[in-house]
Amino acid sequence: MKPQKPVFSLQDVNVDSYKLNAYSGSTLFVSSVITLTLNAQNHNKVGIWYTPSHLEALYDGVPIGTIRIPGFLQPAHSSNVTMQTRLLFPCVNASQIVTEASLQEDSRKTMFQMKILGDVGAHLLVFHIILLKIKVGLECDMNIDYKELTNRNEVHNTIGSFPTNSQSMFMNCTLALNI
């Protein structure tokens, strides 16, 4: 029995709500709620039950948001389990992010770089019996080219979704298993 890593792919990003606040004439703060729809695949012979969890979204090492992950089951030999999670940004200084990005080298001037960190509890299941409890440490580096998003007209309306197969977004994740 060769265990395989479960595979998660981002299917859809939907901006549910947002609020813009301007202070001192030029500082812009953004608060938003975003729904992420993920597709989960588990090619193992055991099911995996994930416990509800929270992950942190960081910008330049500072927490800017929280991802709430509900508990869900990834059955054995499954290839199309869809789950939704919420990304909450309570108050992000958008002016600072754009200013810092403009100071970067030319190839990264329009990039918003974010890190996602946290632990998710998981239980391995066979015939509804828990065999093993593990903790999965997740670290993702996410780059979003916000200029490319707006140039390609990929953000539809003001509240809506943008395609996840976009050239405007890149994510690289690593997992660590703790038994």
Rank of each mutant, 00 (worst) to 15 (best):
F8G: 00
S9R: 07
V13D: 00
N14F: 02
N14A: 03
V15F: 00
S17T: 03
K19P: 04
N21M: 10
N21G: 09
A22P: 03
T27Y: 05
F29C: 06
V30F: 02
V30I: 03
T37P: 04
T37V: 13
L38N: 06
L38E: 04
N42P: 03
N42S: 08
N42D: 10
H43R: 14
H43L: 15
G47T: 02
I48Y: 01
S53N: 05
H54W: 07
H54T: 13
L55S: 07
L55T: 07
D60C: 05
G61M: 06
V62A: 07
T66N: 08
R68Q: 12
L73Y: 03
A76V: 01
H77N: 14
H77S: 15
S79L: 11
N80S: 10
V81G: 11
V81E: 08
V81P: 07
V81N: 08
Q84D: 10
T85R: 05
R86C: 09
L87C: 10
P90K: 11
V92D: 00
S95W: 02
Q96S: 15
E100W: 01
A101M: 04
A101I: 02
A101S: 09
S102K: 14
L103A: 05
S107D: 14
S107Q: 11
S107V: 13
S107F: 09
T110F: 12
T110Y: 10
Q113A: 12
I116E: 01
I116M: 10
L117T: 12
G118Q: 06
G118K: 02
D119C: 09
V120Y: 02
A122D: 03
A122R: 00
L125M: 13
I129P: 08
L131H: 08
L131M: 10
L131I: 07
K133V: 13
I134N: 08
G137S: 09
L138W: 01
L138P: 00
L138V: 06
M142T: 07
M142K: 15
I144W: 05
Y146V: 04
Y146W: 05
Y146C: 00
T150M: 08
R152V: 02
E154R: 03
E154L: 13
H156G: 05
N157I: 10
F162G: 06
P163Y: 00
T164R: 00
T164V: 06
S166C: 07
S166K: 01
Q167M: 13
S168W: 01
F170S: 10
T174H: 11
I179W: 04
